[in-house]
Amino acid sequence: MSEAAATADTAAAHAPAASHGHAPAPGGNLWDGGVRPLGAHSKKFGMWLFIVSDSITFAALLFAYSYVRLSNVWPTPFHGHSIVTSTAMTFVLLSSSLTMVLAVDAANKKLRDKAVLWTMLTALGGLIFVVLHTMEWLGIINDHLMPLIKAGEETKSGWTMPMVWGTFFAATGMHMLHVTVGVGYLVVLALQYKNGKFKAIDIEVAGLYWHFVDLVWMFVFPLIYLMSAKI
């Protein structure tokens, strides 16, 4: 591509350029201001930056888990039942990511109703994940923690949570918080999108968040469950 054509393109990108009587940005470079140099919508860039930060938070949690695990003898409390449940949860979450992709696709093709439908289905997937996960939590609290609490009460020594459960609740709890927030986000977005308030880019940005939640689970699931499985 010739220099002149490139400059013309840049000029086209600045709608108000002609009104100022100046040449387009000197050199016509993308980084010289007046255009978004990264070629992405600001909202999308912002969401990516949030994902950067949040992935570091999750990484720090998982590093803390590894640190504690490295310096202790670690039990393997996850048996067949837990693994089957958590595998099912993983499948639900992965599939909800696929429906999210479909929602973004529909939104980009301006098929509003379809986009709303797929977004709601994604939220439903998230809801199923939260329900399954909560049931699992309750099971663990009943089977593993209640006896400890009772024993602590009897001996009046107070109780402490074994670190295998401490790390489990820290990592999965933080993740579940993200899923729950995500479900609320998607439902509100879908309802408002139906009323014509948001644009395709908003669906896409929500999609980024949802895929990120999925992505985190791809690390939490093997590191927390499978590494401590005994079947």
Partner: peptide
């Protein structure tokens, strides 16, 4: 610069 000519957003 070359890419600027193409549609800016892959989506």
């Amino acid at each position: 610069r070359g890419e600027l000519a193409k549609p800016s957003d892959g989506a």
